[in-house]
Computed example of a mutant assay.
Amino acid sequence: MTELKAFTVEKRDHIAEVTLIGPGKGNAMGPDFFAELPQIFGELDADPDIRAVVLAASGKHFSFGLDLPAMAPMFGPLMEPGALAAPRTDFHREIRRLQDALTSVAECRKPVVAAVQGWCIGGGVDLISAVDIRYASADAKFSIREAKVAIVADIGSLHRLPPIIGEAHLRELALTAKDIDAQRAEKIGLVTDVLPDPAAALDAARATAQEIAANPPLVVQGVKDVLGRERSAAVDDGLRYVAAWNAAFLPSHDLTEAMSAVFEKRTPEFKGR
């Protein structure tokens, strides 16, 4: 792999360990993240020696989600007064690119096991919704935060989480943008188990990856393929729909207010305009 800025990748005993390392605060997801993620998982998918993947994060937090300051140029042209077809088309293309980055995780033929510690917000939840198995440390906290920044979540969580946590739980989390702790996440099925601390969560993810890697690799890939068959078409259709919806309806005074509040470090005041 070329030199990476947002991840490290280590391979050992048929297992690849992919670790988020920033460069944004709290492993926020910026341009490097979205450029490197599909490259990494494309190469791991094609590597015959790799049978399972552990997805982890450095530092106290898994991810603060989308790095709004770093990704602000993506929104700029769309927010110009009277933005017409060209900027909306460009924005639609960018949404699809971000979606495809996370889809590379979901479509990797090698099972992916995540270990989550600290905050897992917005895009972080989108990311873990694309893996196969999730473990959390006791300090983990989760939030589908997009509604609080005047955005309809559009890169995976709304489409991949219904079979994982159920539609009622998803509606509660997405519509309120509330935070939940690790114990609640385990209760609703977002994570398989809660471990005492980040090291234990990572150990659990590694142990499960080792168990997977000990099985016949093509059979494991077949199990993942069969389990994902019915879901994949519906997810793809939903991602296409929300990309078109956001390209049409995302620009608003509330979004401008949300972005300004982030940069000015204050509470936004939404007025539904």
Results as ranks from 00 to 15, higher is better:
223 V>N: 12
40 I>S: 05
131 V>I: 07
44 L>M: 02
44 L>S: 08
219 V>F: 14
256 T>M: 13
178 K>E: 09
95 I>E: 02
48 P>Y: 01
47 D>G: 06
98 L>R: 13
28 A>C: 09
193 D>E: 14
75 F>R: 00
266 R>Q: 12
189 G>W: 03
248 A>Q: 11
103 T>N: 14
180 I>D: 02
8 T>F: 05
170 L>M: 08
199 A>S: 14
263 F>R: 13
216 P>S: 04
261 A>M: 06
13 D>C: 12
139 D>S: 10
181 D>I: 02
12 R>G: 07
155 I>S: 05
123 G>K: 06
108 C>P: 06
10 E>D: 13
120 C>I: 01
140 A>Q: 02
63 S>I: 08
114 A>I: 00
251 P>E: 02
207 A>I: 05
54 V>D: 06
69 P>L: 03
30 G>W: 04
84 L>P: 05
31 P>A: 10
10 E>V: 09
55 L>W: 01
237 D>C: 12
55 L>F: 13
249 F>Y: 15
199 A>R: 09
127 L>N: 07
180 I>Q: 04
28 A>T: 09
12 R>T: 11
248 A>R: 03
141 K>E: 14
107 E>R: 15
185 A>T: 10
156 G>T: 00
214 A>W: 09
248 A>D: 14
242 V>N: 06
234 A>I: 08
24 G>T: 07
254 D>P: 09
193 D>W: 09
272 G>I: 05
270 F>T: 06
25 K>L: 14
98 L>N: 06
197 D>R: 02
72 A>D: 11
66 L>W: 11
184 R>P: 01
72 A>L: 13
153 A>F: 10
144 I>D: 03
259 M>Q: 14
178 K>V: 05
125 V>D: 04
84 L>V: 10
207 A>H: 08
77 P>K: 02
122 G>T: 12
225 D>K: 15
27 N>S: 07
258 A>V: 01
144 I>L: 11
50 I>F: 07
15 I>G: 08
227 L>V: 10
224 K>G: 07
225 D>F: 15
271 K>S: 15
195 L>A: 13
9 V>R: 00
225 D>G: 15
223 V>Q: 13
224 K>N: 08
38 P>V: 04
18 V>A: 01
30 G>A: 02
168 A>W: 09
32 D>T: 10
187 K>L: 10
1 M>Q: 07
145 R>W: 12
152 V>Y: 08
45 D>I: 03
27 N>K: 05
233 A>K: 15
175 L>F: 13
256 T>V: 14
198 P>H: 03
145 R>Y: 15
55 L>M: 13
229 R>L: 15
1 M>H: 09
159 H>N: 11
123 G>Q: 02
19 T>Q: 11
212 I>E: 03
81 P>K: 05
107 E>P: 08
261 A>F: 05
91 F>K: 01
118 G>E: 03
131 V>M: 02
255 L>Q: 06
120 C>H: 03
133 I>G: 08
243 A>K: 00
98 L>V: 07
203 D>R: 14
167 E>P: 13
156 G>S: 06
197 D>E: 08
178 K>N: 08
